[in-house]
Design a protein around this nucleic acid. Sequence first.
DNA 1: TTACTATTGATAATTGTTTTCATTAATATT
DNA 2: AATATTAATGAAAACAATTATCAATAGTAA
Lengths: 128, 128
Amino acid sequence: MEFLQRTGGHFSVEEIYRNVHKAFPSIGLTTVYRTLEVLVEMGLVSRLDFGDGKSRYELSSGSGGTHHHHLCCTGCGRIVDYQEFLEEEKKVIKNIEEALSRKHNFQINEHQIQFLGLCYDCRPKEAK
Amino acid sequence: MEFLQRTGGHFSVEEIYRNVHKAFPSIGLTTVYRTLEVLVEMGLVSRLDFGDGKSRYELSSGSGGTHHHHLCCTGCGRIVDYQEFLEEEKKVIKNIEEALSRKHNFQINEHQIQFLGLCYDCRPKEAK
DNA sequence: TTACTATTGATAATTGTTTTCATTAATATT
DNA sequence: AATATTAATGAAAACAATTATCAATAGTAA
Ligand SMILES: [Mn+2]
Ligand SMILES: [Mn+2]
Ligand SMILES: [Zn+2]
Ligand SMILES: [Zn+2]
């Protein structure tokens, strides 16, 4: 938790392990997996998937993180957090959640929104 | 493609393989992986991730599929497509895309929106 | 026909994650 | 304190989805 709080990033288990292990060399990879699982269950951490084959974790809004969405570069994997348009989004999302909830008899707990594209560096020259 | 068109569902590679292999027993799993990769590149098929550890594929809107978003049950994995509120969503999404694009210098190609929750069957009794 | 190239599928290798299990730490009970 | 009981831990093995390898085959050009 301290590592996620300090860095505020999106990290793979391996990355988290390496970092935590540096400070507490007795801690093993399995414990990192197990602990993350619990933290996600508790709602303190969010598991994310950006399509690179490994889960990533970040501080959830339930534990000091900001509620935000993601902009992902499919070229290099760069992730940009954004929350600027949340106000505008919020209303619509709320509406949709309620309507979907009613219509499909779902209890909606969470949503994930991500925009995929190419960052400036990854764009081909002629598209710049 | 024919299988995805006919069924309109979200299938894992294994599921697609089993089905295609029934009709064309000479086709191997590797070819299914390779072909899906190409189809995704071509924009005819979308790769989705619902967090169950395997990629799923569906017909993309670029090839006859409807543009829609997803409602996912974290209990049983059930997926509901919805598009009812796209009109309302569309405007906001368009705005956000433009603003993000400008601000972060991204070329946005795609977005994914999913709501996570529990379907009626998976909800605990007292929450019904 | 023949030479060359591209595609295929079986198999092996890789990789993120989960399971297993013996060891250790923590807690409860004498 | 001493002992029994239970829970937490990490190393190693097992697992599962995906990717790489490679010999065989199909397709194309000469
Ligand atoms: Mn984030
Ligand atoms: Mn769908
Ligand atoms: Zn990039
Ligand atoms: Zn369900």
